[in-house]
Structure formats: structure tokens, C-alpha cells
Amino acid sequence: MAKVLVVTSGKGGVGKTTSTAALGAALAQAGQKVAVIDFDVGLRNLDLVMGAERRVVFDLINVVQGVARLSQALIRDKRLETLWLLPASQTRDKDALTEAGIASIIREMRGKFDWIICDSPAGIERGATLAMRFADAAVIVTNPEVSSVRDSDRIIGLLDSKTEKAEKGERIDKHILITRFDPNRATRGEMLRIEDVLEILSTPLLGVIPESEEVLRASNIGSPVTLNNAASAPARAYFDAASRLRGEDIPVTIYSERKRFLEKLFGRAA
């Protein structure tokens, strides 16, 4: 039986899609059978970040409406045998998603995968609530800044009240993934510290992804960062996070890129 994981945040632009792709790929690289589902109907991006945009035929809405079978809509990754993508529709809006439709897709997929990762859209509307609806666990992606933290807090409240598990009185596993973290700026007080974020959200930490050019570079070529440059700092942080999702107990490391010689000499370029 698959574990259904929702990657959510409330706020937009914090790295949900990047993290979905990176965690999905990292789990698949560890031999797990993974499906990632894009719930951002109308503003899909996961296909781009995964480099599958030119192979989309059917999408989530087609499956919900019975136009296509699940097996027709799932796209297998070219690099990883055990990684699959169920893309969102770009031409429809979120009203086309129905709870019953999503329920039946998730039910069908549970038997076929180890992990089902739902990439939530920003906001707290239909797409976001349906993405979390059937989740067993949640990764809340947060940037170390106040607006992102407050939105994450709101999302945690929804995870504890509006998911199917919560309504049955069970608890959903919640993990905080801090992205775009810059240790130098945090020490200078220009960013919230990790302790502050965790204190406000009172939820366990899954990992800290450092701010890095590697992330943008990878998504520009349509590759999860863990596949594109497995030795880079963000990739190593995602690998650790994926191991923790599988239950391994490893200490949190803040990875940083080795600075090149000139950068060391002159500091950051303005």
C-alpha cells in the first residue's frame, strides 16, 4: 500500500513543485516506486520541472472525468524506471476536480506504488484542499520569512481539520521542509532562524534546503535537482529528507556549496 504524501505550503513560490520533483526523484533513486501528481490545474508546472512536458497526452482531469484511464495518463520518467508523473490539465480550472474523482484515482494508485506525492497548488482553495484530502502525511514547504511561516501555520490547521484522516479522528504526519535557507543571512538576522520557524509551527523538521543556483539550473533543464547534480548541496539535503520520510533517523545538516576561489577572495558579487 502506498503512502500518500501532500507537498503544500499555502504561499506560492516557496518551492513546492521543486520539492515534489526532488523528493519524488530521490525516493525513486532509492528504489521506491513513486508517482507524483500535479494538482495545480490551470497552472501546471510539475511536468516542466520533471522534463516531461512534451510527452503529456492525457491529464488528471481526463482521468477524473473518465475520458482516459489512469494507465494512459501516467507518464514514466525517462531517467528513472520507478518514477511516474500524473500531470495536471493546463486548459481547465480547478472546478473540474471532484472529490469523488480524486478519491477513486488515489484508491486505484495506492495498490500500484510505494509513494504517491501530491503537488498542491498555492492557496487554500479547492485544488489545495483536494490535494491534501486523502493524504497520510504532509510536507509543509516553508521559506524562513514571516509571511511564509504564517501561511504554513494556516495550512497545518487545515491539515488537522479538513483531511479525511483528521475527520476520522486520526492524525496526519506533518513535516516542515525549510527551503531557500541562507545561513549567512540568518546569522545576520535578515532571515528567520530555523529554531524560530520550528518554534512558531511546533512541527518536526524534515530538512533544510539551502538557497542555491543549482535548483534553478536543474528546473530550467527539466530535471529534479537530485538527478541533475546529486552532489550539490540542495540535492544532498533532499536525499536526507527523503531518507527521513522513509523513517531513517539522520541528523539535520545544513549543506553549503564549496565556494570557488574567486568568490572566496571577493565575497559575494553584488
Binding site: 501555520d153 494556516r154 497545518i156 490547521g157 512558531i200 511546533s202
Partner: peptide
Amino acid sequence: IRSGQSIAFPAGDVIVLGSVSSGA
């Protein structure tokens, strides 16, 4: 108590063991 949550209890005292977040 998370951001966006609202607890209304007109009948008496409210005791919260955890924190009350910004926006709650």
C-alpha cells in the same frame, strides 16, 4: 491554535496549552 482558526466559547474560560498563532 493555527493561523485562521477561531475558537469561540461564550460559556466560560478558554485554556490553551500550546501557542496561539498569528492570525488565529
